[in-house]
Design a protein around this nucleic acid. Structure first.
Length: 496
RNA sequence: GCCGCGUUCGUCUAGGGGUCUAGGACGCCGCCCUUUCACGGCGGUAGCACGGGUUCGAAUCCCGUACGCGGUACCA
């Protein structure tokens, strides 16, 4: 193909990468890779006031963690670079001036106060949403209303100014969105968008159009929050004499309580919002990716689990749904459990080792692998293997009240004591799960009670909890000495 | 308010005029497996927002209404 697909993910370094941003990046990635095209990352750092130092690195790290490697972008420059908008100021300035020369834009010298006043005036006279538009610009200070020589004078004197798009009074802007079909807007509802700010940097609107054109972007795939400003962009393409790329506005990810999944809402509802949170909490990247892809897209058949490569093969924008998708945290958990269980002990070992070290536990690789095998079907995230399995590293400091109440009865101490006596007679090398289970069976048979009558109290004694992996395997792993001392201690604490 | 976009089980979705007594997944409930807790297996629960058309026939097409969401900045 002569015109191969080129898409971009264009985050703004104003904060850590949002989980919704990752989905936008993912859809861009899947789309372009499906067509054998390029995935470009462009940093939209035109807002100096909101710039966050560590944001860019976080965004890049998050993309890498998710497996979305870019063909062009920071650190991977090419002829289309640079990939930071802050390094392309000259370009935007040039095109802004071209637009002015062609009569599609103009200089505006109004101060923030001037505009504020205009808004207030209009509001008072009954206009609920005053805009700097084809009507109001006639009474403002700009190169359309000021005498030519004053404009020149102000420019030369270095007066602050912005460049605004001269949006026509009454026109209909129509374009086809890949996901939504034909959408149309009347220019009456648009304002004379600021293109170049007084600090000389462009706004998103100018910058994204210029860069998408200069970088040969063929498809713009972005969140629905951009749909409303798309007509301004279409106008810009037209005025600049460029062919606009294909547009696709993705449905938003919603919070369970409704509305765009904002930081505040997500936190309130216990949903981690930053990709960094998922990295820190040791989520499986495959799970996050799979979950995110399915939030608004699906292959059309019954498959729920898919690798990145399979998704690339299957992905198509016309299977993306139009309506917003509520973030279903339980489903993410399900995906995470699924992928975690699919992985081998060896694969998980380095990560679980890190968690153990962080918690201050020391253990051999074999020991950790055994715990992994015992715990992995019982936890939702990898670190929980350690968090819920502390008894593999230290004797229980206390015994779960509910489980104790349920299992520790009148006759219990005698029973447990009897079992303790039995296993004490075992040799170090006989302290195996099968034997330990056998011994327990012998005791309950001799005493004529049910299995649980003894097994549960022993479990509480050894782990402090009423549930968990196979008790006998656990005891074997802990070893004879540790196990016996724990049972001994429980008898003392919980009563004989 | 205005502009735009949307609306199938609680949630993510399949469905694109008859094959829909609407399928799958998560969740939830039950059963089986297991003398713990899980995993796993099996089964169940629950939905076409509403009102008009068009048509022999509509979840599917059209128009309204309602509701939801987004936008309305010298932020992206």
């Amino acid at each position: 193909m002569a015109d191969s697909t080129r898409v971009r993910f264009a985050p703004s370094p104003t904060g850590l990468l949002h989980i919704g941003g990752l989905r936008t990046a993912l859809y861009n990635y899947l789309f372009t890779k499906h067509h054998g095209g390029a995935f470009i990352v462009r940093i939209e750092d035109t807002d100096q006031s909101r710039y966050v130092e560590e944001a860019e690195q976080d965004i890049l790290d998050s993309l890498k963690w998710a497996g979305l490697n870019w063909d062009e972008g920071p650190g991977t420059e090419s002829a289309y670079g640079p990939y930071h908008q802050s390094k392309r100021s000259e370009l935007y300035k040039k095109y802004a001036e071209q637009l002015i020369a062609d009569g599609y834009a103009y200089y505006a010298f109004d101060t923030t106060e001037d505009i504020e006043q205009m808004r207030e005036r209009l509001k008072k006279s009954g206009n609920p949403s005053p805009k700097y538009d084809s009507i109001t610009r006639q009474s403002m200070k700009n190169s359309l209303t000021l005498p030519q020589d004053e404009v020149k004078r102000r420019l030369e004197a270095g007066d602050e100014y912005v460049v605004r798009l001269k949006v026509p009074r009454k026109e209909t802007v129509r374009f086809t969105d890949i996901i939504r079909g034909v959408v149309s807007f009347d220019t009456q509802g648009l304002d004379d968008q600021v293109l170049l700010k007084s600090d000389g940097l462009p706004t998103y609107h100018l910058a994204n159009v210029v860069d998408d054109h200069e970088m040969g972007i063929t498809h713009v795939i972005r969140g629905e929050e951009w749909l409303s400003s798309a007509p301004k962009h279409m106008l810009l393409y037209q005025y600049l004499g460029w062919e606009a790329p294909e547009m696709a506005h993705l449905p938003l990810i919603m919070s369970p309580s409704g509305g765009k999944l904002s930081k505040r809402k997500a936190e309130q509802e216990g949903i981690p919002i930053n990709v960094r949170d998922y990295i820190q909490q040791d989520y499986e990247p495959e799970a996050v990716i799979n979950f995110l892809a399915y939030l608004g897209w699906g292959p059309g058949d019954d498959r729920e689990v898919m690798t990145l490569d399979e998704m690339i093969k299957e992905f198509s924008l016309d299977r993306v749904s139009k309506a917003g998708a509520v973030f279903n945290f339980k489903k993410l958990t399900w995906y995470n459990e699924h992928y975690m269980r699919e992985k081998s002990d060896d694969e998980l070992l380095p990560r679980i080792k890190k968690v153990a070290e962080k918690e201050g536990y020391e253990a051999s690789d074999d020991y950790l692998k055994t715990i992994l095998g015992l715990m992995r079907d019982r936890v939702s995230r990898l670190p929980e293997v350690i968090e819920l399995g502390r008894y593999f590293f230290e004797a229980p400091a206390e015994y779960d009240e509910k489980s104790t109440k349920k299992s520790w009865k009148e006759q219990t101490p005698a029973l447990v004591q009897k079992y303790l006596d039995e296993i004490s007679r075992l040799g170090e090398s006989d302290f195996k799960a099968a034997t330990l289970k056998e011994k327990l069976s012998e005791v309950i048979e001799a005493e004529g009670v049910g299995f649980g009558k003894l097994m549960l109290p022993v479990r509480v004694s050894v782990t402090g909890m009423g549930f968990g992996p196979d008790l006998f395997e656990t005891m074997e792993l802990l070893g004879k000495e540790e196990t016996e001392s724990r049972i001994q201690k429980a008898l003392e604490v919980l009563g004989k």
